[in-house]
Design a binder for these strands. Sequence first.
DNA 1: AACCCGGGGTA
DNA 2: TACCCAGGGTT
Length: 345
Amino acid sequence: MTHRASAESKSSRPGSPLPAVADTDIDRVRETIITWFETAARPLPWRDADTTAWAVLVSEIMSQQTPVSRVEPRWREWMQKWPTPADLAQAPTAEVLHRWDRLGYPRRALRLQEAARVIAEELDGRVPRTAAELEQLPGIGSYTAAAVASFAHGERTTVLDTNVRRVLIRLFAGRDRPTPSPSRAETKWAAQFVPETEHEKWNAGVMEFGALVCMARNPSCESCPLNDICAWQKAGRPTSAVKAKTQKWAGTDRQLRGAIMDVLKSAHEHSDGEDNVGDVPVDLFTASTAEVDPKLFDSLPSNTSTRVERVRDLSADADRVSRLIDDLVSDGLAAREDSALRLPG
DNA sequence: AACCCGGGGTA
DNA sequence: TACCCAGGGTT
C-alpha cells in the first residue's frame, strides 16, 4: 500500500486507472517471475554470457515486432558476418538489406547501420552504456534503449515491451490487454516492480513470462504460478470490447513496396561476382508495365520473372510503381549510389 | 494521438 | 480474415 498510488491520474483514457499495488504483491510477483525464469527461460543465443553489447543491440532491433523464432537464424548470420559496429558500418547497404532477408520493416536495417556508423566513428566503437545515451541513436526508442542498457550493461532500467505490459495489466488492472502505446504514467507505474538487485532477471523474466505463459492469445492460466493473485483471472478473464484496428495490407503501397524490395534483393543476390545486372529491375518497373522484352529476364535469376509479375499483379499503374521506387530511393531503402537500386557489379 | 512502416505464423 | 509479434518515427 503506501504512497505509491499517485503514479496515475485520470490521464490514460481507454485503459483507466493503474491501481496501487501492495508491497506484498510486488514481492510475490518479483520472486515468482525470477524463480520461474531461472528454470523456464528459452536458451536464446544473445543471452549467453559472452555476448557483446553490440550483439545484444542487434538482437533487440531485429526483434522489434518480429517473433524471436524468425530472428535467431538471421542474428547468427549477421554476427558472424559483422561482429562489430565497425564491420556493419563499412558494409555495402545493398548487402545489409539483402541479409536482413524477410524480417520485415527494412528501415530497421538502415537505422541499425546508421547506429553502427555513429558508434564506430563517434563513440570509439563502444555501445553506449545508459538508456538515455542509447536512445539518441537512430532506430532506438525507449524500449530498446532500456533493454540494451539492462541486458548488455546491467543498468537498472524499466523494460516495457508488449509482453511486460500485458502481464502487469492482467495481474493488477484485470484487463486482457494494454492500451496501444504506453503512457509516461504506465512506465512510472511499471518501474515499481523492478527490484534493486537482479533487475536483469526481472526485466528478461517478465518479458519471457509474457511470451511463454501469459500470452496474448491462449494464455496458460492453468499452469500459471500467479493465477491466485491475478486480477484478470479473478474477474473472469474478460475481453476488451474495443478491438485494435489493423492496417490494410492487400492492394496497399505497403504491399507493393514489399514486392519491389523483393525483386531488388533477388537481383542483388544474382549480381554477386557479376556485372551484368546493373539496374535492369528498375527498367522493368519504370518501363510500361504492359510491354517488357522477355529477354530481359534471361540475365536475372529464374524466379525474378515471377517476382516482377507479382509486382504487376499488385499494380497495373506504372506511375505508382515509379513513385514507390522514387520513395525507396529517397528513404535510403534503395540508394542509387550505394547500390540496392543500382546494383553492385 | 493518429498514422505509417513488412512479413509470416496461427486460430 | 483478423490478430499477433522483444517498437520507432513522423506529423
